[in-house]
């Protein structure tokens, strides 16, 4: 390995590490997760339409995007919010529509993950 290439590689690494560590505090975001009951308390119109599912294996944005896409295709689903911090998926259902625990479990498995539990409010 040439000296110049070692230097270039080393310098690139140092620059990259410095840039990331300096930018990290501004880039990091606090997880913002509310329990289903708290969501309903804040917005009573959502009563009976909020479902939270805990998912195992969700570790990155691509995982979360997969779950959001698969669940979002369901007619009953109005919106999907995800927290990687708590591993919770918050599903808001369309008014007058329902989504069974089995349907949620099936969708989570279809996206490639496992369902740990469901909370409804």
């Amino acid at each position: 390995m040439k000296e110049t290439s070692i230097f270039t590689t080393f310098a690139t690494t140092i620059l990259a590490v410095s840039a990331v560590w300096l930018a990290a505090p501004a880039l990091a975001e606090e997880a913002e997760t509310r329990l289903a009951a708290e969501i309903v308390a804040a917005e009573p119109a959502l009563e009976g339409r909020v479902v939270q599912a805990e998912v195992i294996g969700m570790v990155c944005d691509f995982c979360a995007q997969s779950l959001k896409k698969v669940l979002g295709r369901k007619d009953a689903v109005s919106s999907v919010d995800i927290s990687l911090e708590t591993k919770l998926i918050t599903i808001i259902l369309n008014e007058g529509m329902a989504l069974s625990d089995e349907e949620i479990a099936e969708a989570v498995n279809w996206a490639g993950y496992e369902l740990a539990g469901i909370v409804r409010a």
Partner: peptide, 13 residues
């Protein structure tokens, strides 16, 4: 270097 949540910018070394 930091752990970001869904939708934020994730950075890896």
């Amino acid at each position: 270097p930091y752990v970001a949540d869904f939708g934020a910018l994730h950075t890896w070394l």
